[in-house]
Nucleic acid binder design. Sequence first.
DNA 1: TTGGCTGCAAATGGTTTGCACTAAT
DNA 2: ATTAGTGCAAACCATTTGCAGCCAA
Lengths: 150, 150
Amino acid sequence: MQNLLAEYHDKLSSNNYKLTSQRKDILTVLINNKDRHFSVEDLYNEVKKVNPDVGLATIYRNLELFCSLNITHMLEFESDYKHYELVSEDDHHHHLICMNCDKIIEFNDEDLVKFEERLAEEYDFDMVKHYIKFYGYCNSCQNSNEGEME
Amino acid sequence: MQNLLAEYHDKLSSNNYKLTSQRKDILTVLINNKDRHFSVEDLYNEVKKVNPDVGLATIYRNLELFCSLNITHMLEFESDYKHYELVSEDDHHHHLICMNCDKIIEFNDEDLVKFEERLAEEYDFDMVKHYIKFYGYCNSCQNSNEGEME
DNA sequence: TTGGCTGCAAATGGTTTGCACTAAT
DNA sequence: ATTAGTGCAAACCATTTGCAGCCAA
């Protein structure tokens, strides 16, 4: 855990950015919630629990900075606001998103890597990153009456 | 071409919506540019060529309507504004997006369907739709010096 | 005829920015 | 000490909404 923070500290310093207390607080929240995807507002509220004086603009500015340093990346959900999460080593996970309860199931898949390789060759495309999202109804919502089964 | 317009007319009428001249103009532009993805602004400008008096709010309101009727759907590019395109029968195409020149290559793939089926079973997920986007550098940008090869 | 549609302009709300102050190095 | 970073509030800008007039059915 602390290793990660140290790693990010290094990344900041080596790019001539300072490790301010706000940045430390934001990163700590992200590290302690590796499996969550935060909206800016969510992250803001979480950081305020640790540092009530933090400003919303600081969250915005630092998420932008962290993304440029590949510490975080933006997720593109079908939402009106942006979501962010830490970039992790085993970062080839994707999302199954329930259209009823908004639950997000993450998955990894080997086959996707092969698929991507084939695609890259076929279209002579130098693949950098991909976003894959599946929308549908999760187990619980299929079985309840709330999931609209037309 | 005209078949499509008639089809959309039916869909509108049967849902108690009128085929106004503005709606006809918007649909015509979309039909005549099936392979383009429009930002709202782009579509607005295109429709204005035919009907200079059309209002921007009308474009917004009708794209929302068309999406609810499954005539169009929203694309989620890494952009600050939403993009739309017509829903088509053979609609399992996805996007390779060049990070240098912003070119968008569309592709279809059989394997993706199989992959999706396996995933649905594995996670007991009732799949409705998916968004798959690959980011990287296209052929031309790999070979020019403009694509940054770090 | 008449209720849905439209154009206009004002409002909304997530995000960005200017500025004076603060703090990490 | 110096300059990057911060909090605040105002600005920004894509999108939404209220309303009076208009037109497809």
